[in-house]
């Protein structure tokens, strides 16, 4: 699962290099958001999804036990 999440992260890093939009601002999404800006807002949303999957599927459960240890030893 960690490998798949890593691939997802790498894919977003590659998609971030959206040179294919750099020379244009059309189409305007909703009539006012330039395409490159909309693309990057999409990257932000995809990042939210990535990290949702990470905390759901790859959470370090061993750290949950630290709370029960009482801490501040």
């Amino acid at each position: 699962m960690k490998v798949l999440l890593g691939i997802f992260l790498l894919a977003l890093i590659v998609l971030h290099q959206d040179f294919w939009w750099h020379d244009r601002y059309t189409p305007l999404i909703f009539g006012f958001v330039p395409i490159s800006l909309a693309w990057h807002v999409g990257i932000s949303l995809a990042a939210g999804l990535l990290w949702f999957l990470a905390v759901t599927l790859a959470w370090p459960h061993e750290l949950d036990a630290v709370e029960a240890e009482g801490g501040d030893q």
Binding site: V41, S44, L45, A47, G48, W51, A54, D64, V66, E67
Partner: peptide, 19 residues
Amino acid sequence: ARSAKSFKLSVVAHPLLMA
């Protein structure tokens, strides 16, 4: 933070709040 689990919301919601 109170617990490790307290971080989950920050990890997920941070990119969305930034946007």
